[in-house]
């Protein structure tokens, strides 16, 4: 059984700039893979190769078992794609534009009318259905872009920064739409917004300088953070020194950070040695002691910290760590 999307050792350079440097992955039906990476990491170039817009220098892409390099038209027929920035023909209306896409995708007759009505409903486009696209708000334009990607109910959905430039409500709406479609599709979305990974993705691949430096569920990626299973305590400043000293003496604690806050409070963060849970020991100690504690928090790892450490140097060390 082959996966919906199989990508093997893609490479692509523009002149002396290496944009994609040996990327391989697979995506199955029901999965939402998030491409995570700083701007210029190679996310868009990878997506352009996947959708058959750019040829790779080497490597292969197979969509539902069809090689996109050798049989581009049937492979493209299985993909819905939202390019970066959601380009659209400004003088067309959603009705004429989506009709055009349906025609090219071979959806005709009754099926076409039904499908367009359905897409208009899913994307809430009815009120602007006959307005020129250039007169629409950004949120509507993005929805038209998403609508053209799903007109044919594709097996593979590839969305390049689908929420970029939208307001928080629109972002939430688009994420909900993507989640709703995930059941029977393989979906790849790219983003540089970390919260999106939690909100949408079942799996995330962090891309840096054209390479995948980590690939796993959001939870697995977080586990790579040194904050994973760390304990953060807020305490009155008078007690801070004695408490941090006591925590540092616990056997499983590797290191203790202190951070002065406002209102004479201090935040103490204890990092575990070897990824063990240390909250049990610490909470027992807190109950027995007489420190003036304001808050205790168990950390589950911080994606932003993992992202930073992987994308700004230190990439080699973590490579393949979370598979």
């Amino acid at each position: 059984m082959s996966s919906r999307v199989e990508v093997h050792d893609l490479r692509k350079s523009f002149g002396t700039i290496v944009a994609v440097d040996g990327i391989s992955f697979t995506v199955d039906s029901g999965e939402i893979l998030g491409f995570l990476g700083p701007n210029g990491a190679g996310k868009s170039t990878t997506m352009r190769i996947l959708t058959g817009y750019l040829p790779p220098d080497s490597g292969s892409v197979s969509i539902c078992g069809i090689d996109i390099l050798h049989r581009p038209v049937p492979a493209k027929a299985r993909i819905g794609y939202l390019p970066e920035g959601a380009p659209l023909y400004p003088e067309m209306t959603p009705a004429s534009f989506l009709g055009f896409v349906a025609d090219i995708r071979g959806i005709t007759g009754n099926g076409k009318a039904q499908r367009l009505a359905r897409v208009a409903e899913i994307m809430h486009l009815k009120e602007v259905w006959h307005q020129p696209i250039e007169t629409l708000s950004k949120g509507f334009k993005r929805r038209v872009g998403l609508a053209q990607a799903i007109v044919h109910d594709p097996d593979v959905l590839i969305l390049d920064e689908p929420t970029d430039g939208l307001d928080p409500n629109q972002k939430r709406e688009v994420r909900q739409l993507v989640r709703d479609m995930a059941r029977d599709k393989a979906i790849i979305i790219s983003t540089h917004i970390l919260e999106e990974v939690h909100a949408v993705c079942t799996r995330a691949a962090i891309i840096s300088r054209g390479r995948i430096v980590a690939d796993g569920t959001p939870g697995e990626l977080e586990a790579m953070s040194e904050y994973n299973h760390a304990v953060t305590i807020q305490v009155r400043a008078d007690d801070a020194v004695s408490l941090s000293g006591a925590i540092a003496r616990l056997p499983d604690v590797r290191k203790v950070d202190t951070l002065p806050l406002a209102d004479r409070l201090v935040e103490i963060t204890a990092f575990p040695a070897g990824g063990e849970r240390i909250i049990t020991g610490i909470s027992r100690m807190l109950q027995e002691g007489s420190w003036d504690i304001v808050e205790v928090r168990h950390e589950s790892g911080r994606l932003d910290e993992v992202f930073l450490s992987l994308t700004a140097g230190g990439a080699e060390e973590a490579q393949g760590g979370a598979r």
Partner: peptide, 14 residues
Amino acid sequence: KTGTIELLMTLPVS
């Protein structure tokens, strides 16, 4: 210029 070429050429059209 408008980027629609990416849209057009990723549709199943030769």
